[in-house]
Design a protein around this nucleic acid. Structure first.
Lengths: 110, 110
DNA sequence: ATGATTTATTTTATTTTATAGAACAAATAT
DNA sequence: ATATTTGTTCTATAAAATAAAATAAATCAT
Protein backbone atom coordinates (compact mmCIF):
# COMPACT_ATOMS: atom_id res chain seq x y z
CA UNK A 1 0.00 0.00 0.00
CA UNK A 2 1.61 3.21 -1.16
CA UNK A 3 0.92 6.20 1.00
CA UNK A 4 -2.17 8.13 0.06
CA UNK A 5 -1.12 11.70 0.72
CA UNK A 6 -0.02 14.11 -1.96
CA UNK A 7 3.36 15.85 -2.20
CA UNK A 8 3.39 19.60 -2.84
CA UNK A 9 4.13 19.36 -6.54
CA UNK A 10 1.83 16.35 -6.93
CA UNK A 11 -1.04 18.31 -5.43
CA UNK A 12 -0.54 21.24 -7.79
CA UNK A 13 -0.24 19.00 -10.85
CA UNK A 14 -3.41 17.18 -9.82
CA UNK A 15 -5.21 20.52 -9.44
CA UNK A 16 -4.06 21.47 -12.96
CA UNK A 17 -5.49 18.20 -14.32
CA UNK A 18 -8.81 19.05 -12.67
CA UNK A 19 -8.77 22.64 -13.97
CA UNK A 20 -7.92 21.62 -17.54
CA UNK A 21 -10.63 18.93 -17.59
CA UNK A 22 -10.55 17.15 -20.99
CA UNK A 23 -7.49 19.11 -22.20
CA UNK A 24 -5.10 17.82 -19.56
CA UNK A 25 -1.88 16.48 -21.07
CA UNK A 26 1.81 16.99 -20.32
CA UNK A 27 2.63 20.22 -22.11
CA UNK A 28 -0.71 21.89 -21.37
CA UNK A 29 -0.34 21.04 -17.68
CA UNK A 30 3.19 22.44 -17.75
CA UNK A 31 1.97 25.72 -19.26
CA UNK A 32 -1.01 25.91 -16.91
CA UNK A 33 1.29 25.34 -13.97
CA UNK A 34 3.35 28.35 -14.90
CA UNK A 35 0.30 30.51 -15.58
CA UNK A 36 -1.35 29.62 -12.28
CA UNK A 37 1.62 29.55 -9.92
CA UNK A 38 4.20 31.78 -11.59
CA UNK A 39 6.72 28.99 -11.11
CA UNK A 40 8.40 27.09 -13.91
CA UNK A 41 7.91 23.32 -13.99
CA UNK A 42 10.03 21.33 -16.40
CA UNK A 43 8.18 18.97 -18.69
CA UNK A 44 10.15 16.00 -17.38
CA UNK A 45 9.07 16.78 -13.84
CA UNK A 46 5.43 17.04 -14.90
CA UNK A 47 5.45 13.71 -16.71
CA UNK A 48 7.29 11.95 -13.90
CA UNK A 49 4.67 13.26 -11.49
CA UNK A 50 1.76 12.29 -13.74
CA UNK A 51 3.13 8.75 -13.94
CA UNK A 52 3.45 8.63 -10.18
CA UNK A 53 -0.09 9.93 -9.75
CA UNK A 54 -1.31 7.27 -12.15
CA UNK A 55 0.34 4.39 -10.31
CA UNK A 56 -1.17 5.78 -7.12
CA UNK A 57 -4.58 5.74 -8.81
CA UNK A 58 -5.17 9.50 -8.59
CA UNK A 59 -5.34 10.01 -12.35
CA UNK A 60 -6.14 7.78 -15.35
CA UNK A 61 -4.76 8.32 -18.84
CA UNK A 62 -5.86 7.56 -22.39
CA UNK A 63 -4.19 8.20 -25.74
CA UNK A 64 -5.91 10.94 -27.74
CA UNK A 65 -5.91 11.24 -31.52
CA UNK A 66 -3.32 13.24 -33.45
CA UNK A 67 -4.53 16.69 -34.51
CA UNK A 68 -3.95 18.17 -37.96
CA UNK A 69 -1.80 21.04 -36.65
CA UNK A 70 1.93 21.00 -37.24
CA UNK A 71 3.66 18.67 -34.83
CA UNK A 72 0.29 17.70 -33.39
CA UNK A 73 1.16 14.17 -32.46
CA UNK A 74 -1.04 12.06 -30.20
CA UNK A 75 -1.39 13.38 -26.68
CA UNK A 76 -1.68 11.35 -23.55
CA UNK A 77 -4.79 12.76 -21.87
CA UNK A 78 -5.18 12.61 -18.13
CA UNK A 79 -8.26 12.83 -15.96
CA UNK A 80 -8.63 12.87 -12.22
CA UNK A 81 -10.15 9.78 -10.60
CA UNK A 82 -12.61 9.57 -7.70
CA UNK A 83 -9.70 8.60 -5.50
CA UNK A 84 -7.73 11.61 -6.75
CA UNK A 85 -10.62 13.93 -5.91
CA UNK A 86 -10.81 12.43 -2.47
CA UNK A 87 -7.08 12.99 -1.91
CA UNK A 88 -7.39 16.63 -3.01
CA UNK A 89 -10.36 17.28 -0.77
CA UNK A 90 -8.65 15.65 2.20
CA UNK A 91 -5.48 17.64 1.69
CA UNK A 92 -7.49 20.84 1.44
CA UNK A 93 -9.65 20.12 4.47
CA UNK A 94 -6.70 19.55 6.79
CA UNK A 95 -5.19 22.88 5.81
CA UNK A 96 -8.46 24.82 5.87
CA UNK A 97 -9.01 23.49 9.36
CA UNK A 98 -5.53 24.58 10.48
CA UNK A 99 -6.02 28.04 9.00
CA UNK A 100 -9.15 28.59 11.08
CA UNK A 101 -6.95 28.06 14.14
CA UNK A 102 -4.62 30.92 13.21
CA UNK A 103 -7.03 33.74 12.32
CA UNK A 104 -4.41 36.41 13.04
CA UNK A 105 -2.19 35.04 10.27
CA UNK A 106 -5.04 35.26 7.80
CA UNK A 107 -5.16 39.03 8.05
CA UNK A 108 -3.35 40.40 5.05
CA UNK A 109 -0.79 42.94 6.11
CA UNK A 110 -0.04 45.68 3.59
CA UNK B 1 19.14 31.79 -3.65
CA UNK B 2 17.28 28.87 -2.19
CA UNK B 3 13.78 28.35 -3.47
CA UNK B 4 11.03 29.95 -1.48
CA UNK B 5 8.22 27.43 -1.82
CA UNK B 6 7.25 24.94 0.86
CA UNK B 7 7.21 21.16 0.55
CA UNK B 8 4.09 19.33 1.71
CA UNK B 9 5.50 18.24 5.06
CA UNK B 10 7.26 21.57 5.51
CA UNK B 11 3.98 23.42 5.04
CA UNK B 12 2.19 21.30 7.62
CA UNK B 13 5.01 21.61 10.16
CA UNK B 14 5.03 25.37 9.65
CA UNK B 15 1.28 25.49 10.22
CA UNK B 16 1.75 23.54 13.47
CA UNK B 17 4.35 26.09 14.60
CA UNK B 18 1.82 28.85 13.94
CA UNK B 19 -0.99 26.98 15.71
CA UNK B 20 1.12 26.19 18.79
CA UNK B 21 2.35 29.79 19.07
CA UNK B 22 4.76 30.05 22.03
CA UNK B 23 4.60 26.31 22.76
CA UNK B 24 6.11 25.18 19.47
CA UNK B 25 8.99 22.75 19.99
CA UNK B 26 9.91 19.38 18.45
CA UNK B 27 7.84 16.94 20.49
CA UNK B 28 4.80 19.21 20.80
CA UNK B 29 4.82 19.79 17.05
CA UNK B 30 5.10 16.05 16.51
CA UNK B 31 2.07 15.41 18.72
CA UNK B 32 0.09 18.27 17.21
CA UNK B 33 0.85 16.93 13.74
CA UNK B 34 -0.71 13.61 14.62
CA UNK B 35 -3.70 15.20 16.32
CA UNK B 36 -4.42 17.53 13.40
CA UNK B 37 -3.69 15.30 10.42
CA UNK B 38 -4.15 11.78 11.74
CA UNK B 39 -0.77 10.91 10.28
CA UNK B 40 2.27 9.90 12.30
CA UNK B 41 5.38 12.03 11.92
CA UNK B 42 8.59 10.73 13.45
CA UNK B 43 10.45 13.10 15.73
CA UNK B 44 13.54 12.91 13.53
CA UNK B 45 11.54 14.02 10.50
CA UNK B 46 10.05 16.94 12.43
CA UNK B 47 13.42 18.20 13.65
CA UNK B 48 15.05 17.76 10.25
CA UNK B 49 12.24 19.82 8.75
CA UNK B 50 12.42 22.49 11.44
CA UNK B 51 16.14 22.87 10.77
CA UNK B 52 15.49 23.18 7.04
CA UNK B 53 12.76 25.76 7.67
CA UNK B 54 15.16 27.71 9.86
CA UNK B 55 17.94 27.83 7.26
CA UNK B 56 15.30 29.00 4.77
CA UNK B 57 14.34 31.75 7.20
CA UNK B 58 10.74 30.60 7.71
CA UNK B 59 11.13 29.95 11.44
CA UNK B 60 13.47 31.24 14.15
CA UNK B 61 14.42 29.28 17.27
CA UNK B 62 15.45 30.11 20.82
CA UNK B 63 16.39 27.89 23.76
CA UNK B 64 13.74 27.90 26.47
CA UNK B 65 14.32 27.22 30.17
CA UNK B 66 14.10 23.76 31.73
CA UNK B 67 10.81 23.11 33.53
CA UNK B 68 10.53 21.44 36.95
CA UNK B 69 8.60 18.43 35.62
CA UNK B 70 10.36 15.12 35.37
CA UNK B 71 12.59 15.00 32.31
CA UNK B 72 11.67 18.59 31.53
CA UNK B 73 14.92 19.58 29.90
CA UNK B 74 15.34 22.77 27.90
CA UNK B 75 13.22 22.98 24.79
CA UNK B 76 14.18 24.59 21.53
CA UNK B 77 11.24 26.90 20.86
CA UNK B 78 10.30 27.83 17.33
CA UNK B 79 8.31 30.74 16.00
CA UNK B 80 7.22 31.58 12.53
CA UNK B 81 8.91 34.56 10.86
CA UNK B 82 7.37 37.23 8.63
CA UNK B 83 8.90 35.43 5.67
CA UNK B 84 7.37 32.15 6.88
CA UNK B 85 3.94 33.77 7.13
CA UNK B 86 4.33 35.11 3.63
CA UNK B 87 5.25 31.67 2.30
CA UNK B 88 2.20 30.12 3.99
CA UNK B 89 -0.16 32.76 2.66
CA UNK B 90 1.24 32.45 -0.84
CA UNK B 91 0.93 28.68 -0.81
CA UNK B 92 -2.64 28.97 0.40
CA UNK B 93 -3.65 31.65 -2.08
CA UNK B 94 -2.48 29.67 -5.11
CA UNK B 95 -4.54 26.69 -4.05
CA UNK B 96 -7.61 28.67 -3.01
CA UNK B 97 -7.53 30.30 -6.44
CA UNK B 98 -7.29 26.92 -8.17
CA UNK B 99 -10.17 25.53 -6.14
CA UNK B 100 -12.46 28.33 -7.30
CA UNK B 101 -11.82 27.11 -10.83
CA UNK B 102 -13.14 23.63 -10.10
CA UNK B 103 -16.40 24.31 -8.25
CA UNK B 104 -17.82 20.90 -9.20
CA UNK B 105 -15.04 19.16 -7.28
CA UNK B 106 -15.84 21.16 -4.16
CA UNK B 107 -19.26 19.58 -3.85
CA UNK B 108 -18.99 16.93 -1.18
CA UNK B 109 -20.39 13.65 -2.47
CA UNK B 110 -21.89 11.35 0.16
C1' DA C 1 10.38 12.24 -50.61
C1' DT C 2 13.78 14.09 -47.52
C1' DG C 3 15.27 17.39 -44.28
C1' DA C 4 13.77 21.05 -41.01
C1' DT C 5 10.50 22.41 -37.57
C1' DT C 6 7.04 21.74 -34.15
C1' DT C 7 4.53 19.32 -30.61
C1' DA C 8 4.91 15.86 -27.58
C1' DT C 9 6.61 12.01 -24.47
C1' DT C 10 10.47 9.43 -22.38
C1' DT C 11 14.79 8.81 -20.27
C1' DT C 12 18.72 9.73 -17.22
C1' DA C 13 21.15 11.97 -13.59
C1' DT C 14 21.21 14.83 -9.58
C1' DT C 15 19.43 17.32 -5.65
C1' DT C 16 16.10 18.09 -2.19
C1' DT C 17 12.44 16.30 0.91
C1' DA C 18 10.63 12.84 3.60
C1' DT C 19 10.84 8.67 6.58
C1' DA C 20 12.65 5.64 10.16
C1' DG C 21 15.07 4.57 13.88
C1' DA C 22 18.90 4.79 16.88
C1' DA C 23 21.95 7.60 19.70
C1' DC C 24 22.70 11.08 22.81
C1' DA C 25 21.65 14.64 26.53
C1' DA C 26 19.66 16.62 30.56
C1' DA C 27 16.25 16.83 33.76
C1' DT C 28 13.48 14.41 37.89
C1' DA C 29 12.27 10.30 40.79
C1' DT C 30 13.39 6.55 43.61
C1' DA D 1 23.59 5.96 41.85
C1' DT D 2 20.55 4.41 38.42
C1' DA D 3 16.15 4.34 36.30
C1' DT D 4 12.76 7.00 33.90
C1' DT D 5 11.07 10.78 31.32
C1' DT D 6 11.38 14.58 28.12
C1' DG D 7 13.85 16.26 24.73
C1' DT D 8 17.30 16.98 20.64
C1' DT D 9 20.67 15.21 17.34
C1' DC D 10 22.58 12.02 14.19
C1' DT D 11 22.72 8.53 10.44
C1' DA D 12 20.95 5.92 6.75
C1' DT D 13 17.53 5.14 3.28
C1' DA D 14 13.54 5.99 0.28
C1' DA D 15 10.64 9.01 -2.22
C1' DA D 16 9.76 13.28 -4.61
C1' DA D 17 11.34 17.19 -7.20
C1' DT D 18 14.42 19.36 -10.59
C1' DA D 19 17.08 19.78 -14.82
C1' DA D 20 18.41 18.70 -19.10
C1' DA D 21 18.91 15.74 -22.94
C1' DA D 22 17.03 12.04 -25.94
C1' DT D 23 13.50 10.21 -28.57
C1' DA D 24 9.20 10.10 -31.38
C1' DA D 25 5.67 11.49 -34.51
C1' DA D 26 3.41 14.81 -36.79
C1' DT D 27 3.49 18.95 -40.50
C1' DC D 28 5.90 22.20 -43.69
C1' DA D 29 8.94 23.58 -47.30
C1' DT D 30 11.51 22.52 -51.00
Amino acid sequence: MGKENLGEFEELVLLMVAVLKDCAYGLAICDEFKAQTGRVATIGAVHATLNRLETKGFVASTLGQATKERGGRRKRLFEITASGKKALLQSRDVKVNLWTQIPDLSIQKI
